[in-house]
Amino acid sequence: MLSQSSDSNLPEKLARHKPEVREAYARYRATGDVEAVQIVILAMVRDHLPKPSDAPITDEQRLIEDLGYDSLAVAEVVFAIEDTFGLRIETSEIMQISTVGSLKAFIAKKLGPQGA
């Protein structure tokens, strides 16, 4: 039932994203470019906003207090990132993430030398 991406290397969760997001993901896979990871994460944070918005999202913004996330939406975006990058994030680690910047930094660290 899940819709399939036309690009077999592209995670299903990115299939609906803009071309520049899909290109950033491909660049990360090819080169380990950390800037490319940030583009993808920012797009996923926007995609999981409970109230959709085109307003700029900054690193300082807190997911819950500033962007309107609730704990389920935080879990949703973290799981989507896990699936996209093949990571495993523990619940205790999710609890440490409060801002967009801390999420980006956390994922970069998780991805290790390739993404750091």
């Binding site: 039932m1 899940l2 819709s3 609906r16 409970p50 109230k51 959709p52 949703e76």
Partner: peptide, 24 residues
């Protein structure tokens, strides 16, 4: 509404359903 993913769903335009509702 055949997909499990709400992002694939479509319904008559006269009804507004916010993302925060759709996801559940």
């Amino acid at each position: 509404v055949e997909s499990m993913n709400w992002r694939d769903w479509k319904w008559p335009a006269r009804y507004e359903i916010a993302r925060e509702t759709l996801r559940g």
